[in-house]
Design a protein around this nucleic acid. Structure first.
Lengths: 193, 193
DNA sequence: GTCTATATGGCGATAGAC
DNA sequence: GTCTATCGCCATATAGAC
């Protein structure tokens, strides 16, 4: 593995965990056993390093769900698989998840465009098709946002939920979360569980 | 208004906008026309200042919805009012909203407890009661999380959604968002709009 | 491609006058 | 309660040797 890739891997970890302002070039250099000066051979400045780190972290995510859309099954079943997969990806690559959260919070327009086009767009498109099939009389865009919102936030709220009434251990089980979301989407509050 | 309050107001703005690490005592001092040293008369260190700022920003939010729960109306109607109010609060006090996002991302256990007990707990309790009334056979805790997740994330995703397929201007209208969420909750994907 | 050394400046926090 | 001055440290970034 070349140096640049080694740097990007560690940068992803550090930026995800502590954010842009709280990561120093010195600190990053230490984790890859380099001097800080050496980083500047690979990246012109800290800002560019961050941008490239984000793009690196997002690079392979666009294709992650492609098998789901090809499956010959009902739209509801596909939606279930998508929710399962999204939750699994967010949990298994929590650095990726945290970088998305940070980008959403920052709201930089240029990087929003990158996030939209490089990460979300393809899956979002298929999700739109699915929504139009399941609920043709509704607003597909809003529904697709709702699906991803539910998956992401249910995970992000875990550290808070422990301190809220009626919390149970099982609420942190990914499969329980997924099942809840699917059921809510398909049936609404009043449907069967 | 005394100096301490003036400091807290500006600190809320700065911490919400740029995060703990990216706010300097010098910079904060400038916005309140003070020397940095003077800040240390009111707060022992930057960490304590941040903690007090968060508590200050959260202080009056707990009671914001109390009228809703008293209204003599159907549970569905109350849920609608809650969603409307939550979205309105998040939009009208975006600094408050951003501080919550930052706290959720940080995940500090001590401060999660503060956030849960000082901000969420009371509304969450009433929301639980509402959920048990509307959907007695379902998991009320998960449903209450879903309600707040939908409200918060739909707003947080706005800067991203502009770059996603099928986006329309009206998707940023708070009333449109609220109506969508209510309809999704009450009817699920397949219900009427 | 990586190093050491360094320029330049901002940071949190404190001392002590008023 | 606020100031100026300062300590000691760490930051980004660059220069130049190897």
């Amino acid at each position: 593995m070349n140096s640049k890739e080694k740097i990007l891997i560690q940068a992803k970890t550090l930026f995800a965990e502590r954010g842009f302002a709280d990561v120093s070039m010195r600190g990053l250099a230490k984790t890859v056993n380099m001097s800080a000066a050496a980083l500047y051979h690979h990246f012109p400045d800290k800002n560019t390093l961050y941008l490239e780190t984000v793009q690196y972290a997002f690079a392979d995510k666009a294709l992650l769900f492609s098998e789901i859309w090809k499956i010959d099954s009902s739209a509801e079943k596909k939606l279930g698989l998508f929710v399962d997969s999204l939750i699994q990806v967010l949990i298994s690559d929590s650095e990726f998840h945290r970088l998305i959260q940070r980008e959403l919070l920052d709201g930089n327009t240029e990087r929003m465009k990158i996030l939209a086009e490089d990460v979300f767009q393809q899956q979002f498109y298929f999700l739109l098709v699915l929504m139009k099939e399941i609920a043709p009389e509704r607003d597909a865009h809003s529904l697709a946002i709702s699906v991803s919102s539910l998956c992401m936030r249910h995970i992000e709220m875990q550290s808070l939920c422990r301190f809220l009434p009626d919390w149970k251990q099982e609420h942190e089980n990914p499969e329980v979360i997924a099942k809840h979301i699917i059921s809510l989407l398909l049936n609404g509050l009043k449907g069967d569980t």
